[in-house]
């Protein structure tokens, strides 16, 4: 039995956390929800939110720009995260072997992840510059026509994906490399004694044992990648046209350039829902896959 004094003390200790949580998470969330179902106007010396029901959601679902932004975001997430996983896994497997200069490679591989996305955006913007960038110079020396990496609608999204892969593959590498190091060597040695080939060891032992780390890594990157904004903002500003306008950039434009707070809040919340649904689908699918394998 916990005494009343102890209960009171417990509440007292919890209070700061609860207050912080309320201030920085719950209240902003409630305010965002209020904005989504209202029309926010600064009138007569105060912020007035008039209830308008689902008007902002109707507008959202009928907004061509929203569907474009959602499509762009999903394409970036799908391409970037899957390639980051494959490359990260490849690098992790490479460094899991005994290599000369392994420690140096390990440090080098994680450097891009340590840079701020803004700096990375500027760097790749210079690299991809169609007029003065080094890639254009190389292509010209090879007698090839320059490519509008950031200036052609059909190409720009791949430039964004390349940049994201460059920066965030190290994240995948780091998690997968740590997980590889944790796999007991006995399993692999036993399999080899039983005559398993390298591919069989990888497919039947390494990969299943990496599954928990893989799921965590992919999930975390998916959530982060859905929110991609800084590199795009610097590299293309969402253009050409709307070919690289992500959900976050769209929300930023509406909320902070047009100062349309209620619609901006609706876009932000729709991004939250998109991330939530994607994550749930991913977790459910991977769980099913594991269950099927177990059976």
């Amino acid at each position: 039995m916990i005494g009343k004094t102890a209960q009171r003390q417990g509440r007292l200790f919890l209070a700061p956390t609860v207050i912080l949580l309320l201030c920085f998470t719950i209240f902003p969330l409630l305010f965002t929800i209020a904005l989504m179902f209202g029309e926010a106007r600064f009138v007569g010396g105060g912020l007035r939110i008039e209830f308008v029901g689902g008007r902002n959601w109707v507008r959202l679902f009928g907004d061509e720009r929203f569907w474009n932004a959602l499509g762009v975001t999903v394409r970036i997430v799908a391409m970037a995260v899957s390639l980051e996983y494959l490359l990260g896994l490849g690098l992790a497997l490479l460094l899991d072997r005994k290599l000369r200069g392994q420690a140096v490679f390990r440090v080098l591989f994680i450097v891009p992840m340590l840079l701020t996305p803004i700096a990375v955006g500027y760097m790749w913007r210079m690299i991809f510059d169609v007029g003065r960038g080094p890639i254009t110079g190389i292509l010209e020396r090879l007698g090839l026509a320059p490519v509008g990496w950031l200036t052609e609608s059909s190409v720009a999204i791949y430039s964004i994906v390349i940049t994201d892969i460059w920066q965030w593959t190290p994240f995948m590498f780091l998690i997968l490399y740590a997980a590889l190091q944790a796999i007991p060597k006995d399993y692999i040695e036993a399999a080899r004694v039983d005559g398993a080939s390298g591919w069989q060891v990888f497919r039947r032992i390494t990969l299943p044992l990496l599954a928990p780390a893989s799921i965590a890594a992919v999930l975390l990157r998916t959530i982060e990648c859905f929110k991609i904004v800084d590199t795009i903002y610097i590299m293309t500003g969402g253009g050409p046209g709307r070919s690289t306008e992500s959900m976050t950039l769209f929300g930023y434009a509406i909320g902070f350039r047009a100062f349309d707070l209620d619609y901006g809040a609706t876009i932000s919340f729709s991004l939250f829902l998109a991330v939530l649904v994607s994550s749930m689908v991913f977790v459910t699918l991977t769980r099913r896959l594991r269950e099927v394998r177990m059976e």
Binding site: R65, S153, P240, R242, A253, A258
Partner: peptide, 19 residues
Amino acid sequence: AKYFEALDAQLALVVAGQK
């Protein structure tokens, strides 16, 4: 700002050849 944002978004489509 809202009027200008609406214009700017459409100008971006025109210069990209999408409208």
